[in-house]
C-alpha cells in the first residue's frame, strides 16, 4: 500500500508542480504573489473544453488555440492591470491585490457563463494502466509527471540559457539597472506573463484530462497548494517548485492514507510551516535568493 500511496502522491504532486512552475516564475521576475495564476489554470482548462466542442472534437487544435488564448489572457492581466501600477510606481502590495481582484473576476466570470457544475472533460491520452508489484499506475499519471519535468527543463533552458532569460534574470535583480542596460522591461514582463499563461493552460488541460472533469473551483482548490509548493521549494527557484509540489503531494497522500483523511491538508500545511521555521527561505532558496 505504501508504494501505491507514493505513486498517488507523486501524481497529485505533479499536478501541483505543473501549476506552481508558472507561479514561481512570475514571482522570480516581479516578486509578485500572483493570485490569478490558479485562475488562469482554470481558464485554460475551460478554453480547451470549449474549443474542443467548438472545433468538432479536434483535441490538438483545441489545445493549441487554448494555449494561445490563455497566453493572451496572461498578457492582458499584465498589460491592462499591472503595467499601470508599475508606471505609477505603486507599492508591491497593490499588485498583489490587483491579482486577487483579477482572480475573483476570472473565477466568477467563468462561473456566471458556464455555471458552477462540474463539466465532463475528454481524456485523449487514456492508454490504460500497468502494475508495479501490487500498485496500479495509469499511463496518464506517467504522462503528467513527464510533462511536469519537461516543462521545468524547457523553462530552465529558456531562463538560464537564452538571451531573453538573461533579460528576465537581470530584471528580477534590479529593474532600474536592467532598463539602463537597454532591456525593454515591459516586454520582458509581458513575456513572463504569457509563458505563465501558457503553462497554466497546459497544466489545466492535463489535470482536466486526468480527472475527466473540470469545474470552476479547480483553481481555488489547487491555489493554496501551489503557493505552498512554491514556498516549500523556495520561491523563484524553478526546480524548487517541482520538488516542492511533489513533496506536498506525497505528504498529503501519506497523511490521508495513514493518519486521517479529514486532516490531510492541515497536516501538509503544518509541515510547510515547520519547514519554514528551520529554513525560512524554503528548501532550495538561498539566503541570497537565486531568482529565476
Amino acid at each position: 500500500m505504501l508504494l501505491q500511496q507514493i505513486i498517488n502522491g507523486l501524481t497529485i504532486g505533479s499536478t501541483y508542480a505543473l501549476v506552481s512552475i508558472g507561479f514561481t516564475m512570475v514571482f522570480g521576475v516581479l516578486e509578485l504573489t500572483n493570485f490569478a495564476n490558479s485562475s488562469l489554470y482554470m481558464l485554460g482548462a475551460y478554453f480547451t473544453l470549449m474549443l474542443y466542442n467548438a472545433t468538432g472534437h479536434h483535441f490538438f487544435v483545441a489545445l493549441l488555440m487554448s494555449i494561445i488564448l490563455t497566453g493572451i489572457a496572461g498578457y492582458c492581466l499584465d498589460r491592462f492591470a499591472l503595467r499601470r501600477l508599475r508606471r505609477k510606481n505603486a507599492p508591491k502590495l497593490a499588485g498583489l491585490i490587483t491579482t486577487l481582484g483579477m482572480s475573483m473576476i476570472f473565477d466568477n466570470g467563468i462561473m456566471l457563463i458556464f455555471g458552477s457544475e462540474s463539466k465532463s472533460f475528454p481524456n485523449q491520452i487514456d492508454l490504460g494502466r500497468f502494475y508495479i508489484g501490487n500498485a496500479i499506475v495509469s499511463w496518464t499519471q506517467v504522462i503528467i509527471m513527464v510533462v511536469a519535468f519537461s516543462l521545468m527543463a524547457i523553462l530552465s533552458i529558456i531562463v538560464y540559457g537564452t538571451k531573453l532569460g538573461k533579460a528576465m534574470r537581470s530584471t528580477s535583480q534590479n529593474v532600474e539597472a536592467a532598463r539602463l542596460m537597454g532591456i525593454n522591461i515591459n516586454s520582458v514582463i509581458a513575456f513572463t506573463f504569457i509563458i505563465s499563461g501558457i503553462l497554466a493552460c497546459i497544466s489545466g488541460t492535463m489535470v482536466g484530462m486526468y480527472y475527466q472533469t473540470v469545474d470552476v473551483n479547480m483553481g481555488t482548490m489547487i491555489g493554496m497548494k501551489t503557493f505552498a509548493a512554491a514556498i516549500l521549494g523556495g520561491v523563484g527557484v524553478l526546480p524548487g517548485a517541482v520538488i516542492g509540489g511533489l513533496i506536498i503531494g506525497i505528504i498529503e497522500t501519506i497523511a490521508a492514507g495513514y493518519i486521517s483523511t479529514g486532516y490531510r491538508d492541515a497536516i501538509a500545511f503544518t509541515i510547510l510551516i515547520i519547514v519554514l521555521l528551520f529554513k525560512p527561505t524554503g528548501l532550495f532558496g538561498q539566503k541570497q535568493i537565486n531568482k529565476v
Binding site: 491585490i97 490587483t98 481582484g101 483579477m102 475573483m104 473576476i105 466568477n108
Partner: peptide, 8 residues
C-alpha cells in the same frame, strides 16, 4: 465579481 472589479 463586483468585489473583484472594485479591487482592480
Amino acid at each position: 465579481l463586483i468585489y473583484g472589479i472594485i479591487l482592480v
